[in-house]
Amino acid sequence: MDRLQEIRFVLNGKEASYTGSAADRLLDVLREQFRCTGVKCGCREGECGACAVLIDGLLRNSCCVAMGAVEGTSIVTIEGYRETARFAVLDRAFAQLSAVQCGFCTPGMILAAEALLSAHPHPTEEEIREGLSGNLCRCTGYNAIVNAVKSAAEEGEGLW
Protein backbone atom coordinates (compact mmCIF):
# COMPACT_ATOMS: atom_id res chain seq x y z
CA MET A 1 0.00 0.00 0.00
CA ASP A 2 2.34 2.66 -1.22
CA ARG A 3 1.86 6.09 -2.41
CA LEU A 4 2.84 6.02 -6.04
CA GLN A 5 6.48 6.91 -6.26
CA GLU A 6 7.49 6.48 -9.81
CA ILE A 7 5.20 5.28 -12.53
CA ARG A 8 6.87 2.62 -14.65
CA PHE A 9 5.65 1.36 -17.96
CA VAL A 10 6.90 0.27 -21.34
CA LEU A 11 6.64 2.80 -24.13
CA ASN A 12 7.11 1.56 -27.67
CA GLY A 13 9.09 -1.40 -26.39
CA LYS A 14 11.36 0.55 -24.07
CA GLU A 15 11.25 0.89 -20.29
CA ALA A 16 9.93 4.29 -19.30
CA SER A 17 9.08 6.05 -16.08
CA TYR A 18 7.27 9.15 -14.99
CA THR A 19 7.75 11.04 -11.78
CA GLY A 20 5.11 13.71 -12.19
CA SER A 21 1.58 13.58 -10.83
CA ALA A 22 -0.37 10.37 -11.18
CA ALA A 23 -3.35 12.52 -12.13
CA ASP A 24 -1.62 13.94 -15.23
CA ARG A 25 -2.95 12.96 -18.59
CA LEU A 26 -1.16 10.31 -20.57
CA LEU A 27 -1.73 12.43 -23.68
CA ASP A 28 0.16 15.40 -22.26
CA VAL A 29 2.95 13.26 -20.87
CA LEU A 30 3.45 11.40 -24.14
CA ARG A 31 3.61 14.65 -26.07
CA GLU A 32 5.64 16.72 -23.66
CA GLN A 33 7.99 14.39 -21.83
CA PHE A 34 8.39 11.68 -24.43
CA ARG A 35 7.95 13.90 -27.52
CA CYS A 36 5.52 11.45 -29.06
CA THR A 37 3.85 14.23 -31.01
CA GLY A 38 2.22 11.80 -33.39
CA VAL A 39 -0.31 11.46 -30.59
CA LYS A 40 -2.64 14.34 -31.45
CA CYS A 41 -4.94 16.36 -29.25
CA GLY A 42 -8.26 17.07 -30.93
CA CYS A 43 -10.67 17.49 -28.05
CA ARG A 44 -9.22 16.31 -24.74
CA GLU A 45 -12.57 14.70 -23.89
CA GLY A 46 -12.44 11.27 -25.48
CA GLU A 47 -14.69 12.32 -28.32
CA CYS A 48 -12.44 12.34 -31.38
CA GLY A 49 -9.87 9.56 -31.17
CA ALA A 50 -6.94 11.66 -32.45
CA CYS A 51 -4.97 10.77 -29.32
CA ALA A 52 -5.61 7.02 -29.55
CA VAL A 53 -2.82 4.71 -28.43
CA LEU A 54 -2.62 1.02 -27.64
CA ILE A 55 -2.38 0.08 -23.99
CA ASP A 56 -1.64 -3.60 -23.54
CA GLY A 57 -2.88 -4.05 -27.07
CA LEU A 58 -6.19 -2.29 -26.51
CA LEU A 59 -7.18 0.93 -28.20
CA ARG A 60 -7.51 3.78 -25.69
CA ASN A 61 -7.90 7.53 -25.88
CA SER A 62 -4.81 8.84 -24.11
CA CYS A 63 -6.61 12.05 -23.12
CA CYS A 64 -8.82 10.00 -20.82
CA VAL A 65 -6.06 8.07 -19.10
CA ALA A 66 -4.39 9.30 -15.92
CA MET A 67 -0.73 8.40 -15.51
CA GLY A 68 -1.45 6.36 -12.38
CA ALA A 69 -3.43 3.95 -14.52
CA VAL A 70 -0.55 3.14 -16.87
CA GLU A 71 1.73 1.72 -14.19
CA GLY A 72 2.90 -1.67 -15.39
CA THR A 73 1.35 -1.43 -18.84
CA SER A 74 2.84 -1.49 -22.29
CA ILE A 75 1.97 1.49 -24.46
CA VAL A 76 2.35 1.71 -28.21
CA THR A 77 2.02 5.02 -30.03
CA ILE A 78 2.42 5.68 -33.74
CA GLU A 79 6.12 6.32 -33.06
CA GLY A 80 6.54 2.68 -32.12
CA TYR A 81 3.95 1.19 -34.39
CA ARG A 82 5.45 2.75 -37.50
CA GLU A 83 8.43 0.42 -37.13
CA THR A 84 6.32 -2.72 -37.57
CA ALA A 85 5.56 -4.91 -40.56
CA ARG A 86 1.86 -4.44 -39.95
CA PHE A 87 2.26 -0.70 -40.20
CA ALA A 88 4.02 -1.13 -43.53
CA VAL A 89 0.97 -2.93 -44.87
CA LEU A 90 -1.43 -0.26 -43.65
CA ASP A 91 0.93 2.44 -44.90
CA ARG A 92 0.89 0.99 -48.41
CA ALA A 93 -2.87 0.57 -48.45
CA PHE A 94 -3.49 4.12 -47.20
CA ALA A 95 -0.99 5.45 -49.75
CA GLN A 96 -2.55 3.63 -52.65
CA LEU A 97 -6.02 4.93 -51.86
CA SER A 98 -4.87 8.41 -50.75
CA ALA A 99 -6.67 7.88 -47.49
CA VAL A 100 -4.68 10.59 -45.75
CA GLN A 101 -5.81 14.17 -46.24
CA CYS A 102 -5.05 16.62 -43.45
CA GLY A 103 -3.41 13.84 -41.49
CA PHE A 104 -4.48 14.93 -38.04
CA CYS A 105 -6.73 11.95 -37.37
CA THR A 106 -4.43 9.54 -39.16
CA PRO A 107 -2.09 8.23 -36.43
CA GLY A 108 -5.09 7.50 -34.18
CA MET A 109 -6.94 5.98 -37.10
CA ILE A 110 -3.99 3.69 -37.90
CA LEU A 111 -3.90 2.43 -34.32
CA ALA A 112 -7.66 1.89 -34.41
CA ALA A 113 -7.14 -0.11 -37.59
CA GLU A 114 -4.45 -2.17 -35.87
CA ALA A 115 -6.75 -2.89 -32.92
CA LEU A 116 -9.54 -3.83 -35.30
CA LEU A 117 -7.39 -6.13 -37.44
CA SER A 118 -5.97 -7.81 -34.35
CA ALA A 119 -9.49 -8.73 -33.32
CA HIS A 120 -10.85 -9.33 -36.82
CA PRO A 121 -8.15 -10.26 -39.33
CA HIS A 122 -10.81 -10.61 -42.04
CA PRO A 123 -13.21 -7.84 -41.20
CA THR A 124 -16.47 -7.08 -42.94
CA GLU A 125 -17.12 -3.47 -43.92
CA GLU A 126 -19.46 -3.20 -40.97
CA GLU A 127 -16.76 -4.41 -38.58
CA ILE A 128 -14.31 -1.92 -40.04
CA ARG A 129 -16.74 0.95 -39.59
CA GLU A 130 -17.43 -0.17 -36.03
CA GLY A 131 -13.72 -0.46 -35.31
CA LEU A 132 -13.03 3.07 -36.57
CA SER A 133 -16.19 4.58 -35.14
CA GLY A 134 -14.43 6.40 -32.30
CA ASN A 135 -12.01 8.16 -34.62
CA LEU A 136 -13.48 11.23 -36.24
CA CYS A 137 -12.26 12.24 -39.66
CA ARG A 138 -13.63 15.41 -41.21
CA CYS A 139 -11.78 15.25 -44.53
CA THR A 140 -12.40 11.96 -46.25
CA GLY A 141 -15.98 10.88 -45.74
CA TYR A 142 -14.32 7.64 -44.50
CA ASN A 143 -14.62 5.76 -47.82
CA ALA A 144 -10.91 5.79 -48.56
CA ILE A 145 -10.01 4.85 -44.99
CA VAL A 146 -12.47 1.98 -44.81
CA ASN A 147 -11.37 0.72 -48.21
CA ALA A 148 -7.72 1.01 -47.23
CA VAL A 149 -8.25 -1.06 -44.10
CA LYS A 150 -10.10 -3.64 -46.15
CA SER A 151 -7.24 -3.73 -48.62
CA ALA A 152 -4.64 -3.97 -45.84
CA ALA A 153 -6.48 -6.94 -44.38
CA GLU A 154 -6.22 -8.70 -47.73
CA GLU A 155 -2.63 -7.69 -48.47
CA GLY A 156 -1.47 -8.45 -44.97
CA GLU A 157 -2.92 -11.95 -44.93
CA GLY A 158 -1.32 -13.85 -42.08
CA LEU A 159 0.16 -10.81 -40.34
CA TRP A 160 -2.81 -10.28 -38.08
Binding site: R3, E6, A66, G68
Partner: peptide, 20 residues
Protein backbone atom coordinates in the same frame (compact mmCIF):
# COMPACT_ATOMS: atom_id res chain seq x y z
CA UNK B 1 13.14 13.68 -7.81
CA UNK B 2 10.19 11.62 -6.90
CA UNK B 3 6.88 13.31 -7.05
CA UNK B 4 4.28 11.71 -4.87
CA UNK B 5 1.21 13.64 -5.82
CA UNK B 6 -1.84 12.69 -7.74
CA UNK B 7 -2.85 9.26 -6.62
CA UNK B 8 -2.57 5.86 -5.03
CA UNK B 9 -2.61 2.48 -6.61
CA UNK B 10 -4.23 -0.46 -4.86
CA UNK B 11 -3.40 -4.07 -5.55
CA UNK B 12 -6.03 -5.72 -3.41
CA UNK B 13 -9.50 -4.82 -2.31
CA UNK B 14 -8.37 -4.55 1.28
CA UNK B 15 -5.67 -2.04 0.31
CA UNK B 16 -8.17 -0.10 -1.71
CA UNK B 17 -10.61 0.07 1.19
CA UNK B 18 -7.92 1.20 3.59
CA UNK B 19 -7.00 4.03 1.27
CA UNK B 20 -10.59 4.89 0.60
Amino acid sequence: MVNTSGGYSAFSLQEALELR
